[in-house]
Write a protein that binds this DNA or RNA. Structure first.
Lengths: 197, 197
DNA sequence: TAAGAAGTTGTACTGCGTTCAGGTTTGGGT
DNA sequence: ACCCAAACCTGAACGCAGTACAACTTCTTA
């Protein structure tokens, strides 16, 4: 990893940390992009070269963490049944972003209007999961694959929604496992029958 | 229904139709709020008194249709099991907004970035559904209720995602029924056990 | 029909997000 | 050690979404 790449990641993290600190202190609307950029020591233009929107600075995934998770998903040779394996991927994801979850959740509690942006976080790893599910269920059509993905995400989102950020991370991870297990037990029965429906 | 209320609804629908027509013709980004307001014969200020954001004009629910659906949900004395009854509510919702679905879907196909806004449509009737589910599952905790809601919505969203807007509405309705049945069969088994988990 | 409530309009303002030309830093090749 | 091209950062200017507000018009009701 060259100097250039390291500096970029460092800048990304500086801007992100600065943003979350300011937003935690003053609230999302009371902090402008200008404020964040100034405090992080970069220009407004540079801010937008790292984050496409102001919301993104609070909810985008760490590039390195995301890349690591992606390679793990791509190289996955797990031979468990579909839903336990899928559950592991979501737990991995939550673990990877564990550091930021409490503060993000607290921002969401103070500003429910950002729920949409939070869901966009899921969308950033959805394509990888879609491919992974397709690979695991060769007979599945588009409907079945999307249904599995969206249902699993519903479980993940629900666990995040109900989680209290002052609780330890293990509580969240167990809740994710619980939710995916509950929603998965029904869909598992459809895995074989989808092409004959 | 007084003159005032009738005029308001009429204005709402004029703005909405105008907006969808212009957006269909030129694309979402190439139409400004100013354009829509001018073409609809109102001021920019008035536009924002009807729709909180530019996205809302494409995805908000018709006030009358929403009100009718709400009373139907509130007065619901259906004694079917949970998931068939819930399925009926979603099918009702889709029927109620059937008129706009094809053009909205076409806008989404041309502009995938608006998916988040489309999901906000669901959020506008989510609170009603949450209350309805709570009423139907007295023993359920917050996790179970949210899980049922989010999972049902995942089914609904999935059906919308894979639906081809050139297909007749019945195809979509059947798909909604199919998706909710699939995701519901698993969760139905948890209805009784949630308080002992 | 007069008073007041509800709705509309123009204006001015903040702040997000984009574009672009010009300057600076970095890594690779000689 | 030097140079060059590519990548990066920056300031300035712009368009447009969304808000605030005071003046004005239209509807309701007593």
């Amino acid at each position: 990893m060259g100097l250039r790449e390291r500096k970029k990641l460092e800048a990304w993290r500086t801007i992100r940390s600065t943003a979350l600190r300011l937003i935690s202190e003053r609230g999302f609307d009371a902090v402008s992009v200008e404020d964040i950029a100034a405090e992080a020591g970069v220009s407004r233009t540079t801010f937008f070269s790292y984050f496409p929107t102001k919301e993104a600075v609070a909810f985008d995934l760490d590039p390195q963490a995301l890349a690591e998770w992606r390679t793990r998903v791509a190289d996955d040779t797990d031979d468990q049944p579909l839903w336990p394996a899928l559950t592991d991927l979501f737990v991995d994801m939550a673990t990877v972003i564990a550091e930021w979850l409490p503060v993000q959740k607290r921002v969401l509690q103070q500003h429910p209007g950002l729920t949409q942006s939070a869901r966009a976080t899921c969308d950033s790893f959805a394509p990888d999961l879609y491919r992974w599910i397709s690979r695991r269920t060769p007979g599945g059509d588009r409907l079945q694959t999307s249904l599995v993905l969206n249902t699993a995400m519903a479980g993940y989102i629900t666990a995040l929604e109900v989680w209290d950020p002052t609780d330890p991370l293990d509580v969240l991870l167990d809740s994710i496992r619980d939710c995916l297990h509950r929603v998965g037990t029904g869909l598992a029965a459809w895995e074989r029958t989808s092409s004959t429906a």
